[in-house]
Computed example of a mutant assay.
Amino acid sequence: MAWIVLLASGVLEAVWATALDKSEGFSRPLPSAVFVLGLVLSMTGLSYALRTVPVGTGYAVWVGIGAALTAAYAMVLGGENVNPLKVALLAGLVACVAGLKLVH
């Protein structure tokens, strides 16, 4: 169960990171509220998962998922440039995160 919560928390990290960008310095109420809610839920889930998963592994998985999803979102919908090297590096990040689960 801890791993499922950790994965969901990583997804929520991407949500709050994207909402932070969309909030334009907290000047837009809806993205600002999504940021706060996403942050609280993400941190709560990470805290729960770290009761079972070692902190180094848990944090690396959480931030890796969040970083990869945030970057992918920015490339697909946010107008960030896409190139093969960037995609390959993100795929490598995801592979490393999956590897951490396998060695746990």
Rank of each mutant, 00 (worst) to 15 (best):
A2Q: 05
I4E: 12
L6F: 08
L12F: 09
L12N: 02
A14M: 08
A17Y: 01
A19W: 02
D21Q: 13
D21A: 13
K22H: 12
S23K: 11
S23G: 12
G25T: 09
G25M: 11
V34G: 00
F35P: 00
G38A: 01
L39M: 15
L41P: 03
M43I: 14
M43V: 12
T44V: 13
G45Q: 09
G45R: 06
L46D: 01
L46S: 04
S47W: 11
S47N: 13
S47C: 07
S47E: 01
A49D: 03
L50M: 14
T52Q: 06
T52I: 02
V53S: 00
V55D: 01
T57I: 14
G58E: 00
Y59I: 05
Y59C: 05
V61F: 06
I65Y: 08
A72N: 02
V76C: 08
V76H: 09
L77E: 11
G78V: 05
V82N: 05
L85V: 07
K86P: 00
K86A: 14
A88I: 10
L89F: 10
L90P: 04
A91R: 14
A91N: 13
L93P: 07
L93V: 13
C96L: 13
V97F: 06
G99R: 04
L100M: 10
L100I: 11
L102V: 11
H104C: 08
H104V: 09
